[in-house]
Simulated scan of single mutants.
Amino acid sequence: MSTPARLKGTLFVSGTRLLYVGPLVATRRHAHHAAQIVIAPGGLDIEDSVSGRIHVGGAVIPPHVPHGHGACAHAALLFLDGDERASRGLARDAEPRCEAWGRDALDVMVPRDPTPEMARALMASILSAVDLGPPPGPRHPAARRMCALLDGSGTDDVDLASLSREAGLSPRQMRHAFTRDVGLPMRAYLRWKRLRRAVAAVEAGASLSAAAASAGFADSAHLSRVFREQFGITPTQGLSSITWRTLD
Rank of each mutant, 00 (worst) to 15 (best):
A124W: 11
G57D: 02
R112D: 13
D131Y: 00
P66G: 09
D157C: 12
Y20C: 08
P66Y: 09
S162F: 13
G168N: 05
G154P: 03
A26Q: 04
G43T: 02
H33W: 10
A26D: 01
M186Q: 13
V226C: 08
S153V: 03
S49I: 09
S87H: 05
I54C: 01
M1N: 08
R103K: 06
A218I: 11
S128R: 15
D156C: 12
G58E: 05
F231N: 09
A40K: 00
G43S: 01
V25R: 08
A161T: 12
G205M: 09
A206F: 08
F227S: 11
P63C: 03
P235M: 05
A40R: 00
V182A: 06
L184H: 04
F79T: 09
A211T: 06
E95C: 12
R17M: 10
P23L: 01
S170A: 03
F231R: 10
H176A: 15
A198N: 02
L195N: 00
R92I: 08
F227E: 01
L208N: 02
R139W: 14
S241E: 14
A210M: 09
R245A: 14
L127C: 15
T115E: 07
S214H: 04
S241I: 03
Y189T: 06
G137M: 07
T246H: 15
L195E: 00
R145L: 15
L195C: 00
G152M: 07
T236V: 15
L44S: 01
V13G: 12
W192L: 06
V65G: 07
L19M: 06
G89M: 06
A204G: 08
G52T: 03
T3P: 10
D131V: 00
G232M: 01
G102P: 00
R245D: 10
G42E: 07
G68N: 04
R144V: 11
R97V: 12
D151Y: 11
V182Q: 08
L184G: 04
R197A: 14
D113W: 12
L19R: 06
H30K: 01
L169R: 00
T234Q: 07
R197V: 07
V182L: 10
D248W: 09
K193P: 01
G58N: 08
R180F: 13
T243S: 14
G15S: 05
V108M: 00
T246P: 11
T179C: 09
L163W: 10
T234K: 04
D104E: 05
E47M: 12
S170W: 05
G216K: 07
D159M: 08
A143Q: 07
V130G: 11
V50I: 13
S14H: 13
A105S: 15
L80F: 05
L169P: 01
P4D: 07
D157N: 14
V56G: 01
L132A: 08
T10I: 05
G102N: 03
I233Q: 10
D81T: 03
K8Q: 15
V25C: 06
F178H: 10
L160K: 14
H176G: 11
E229I: 06
H32R: 04
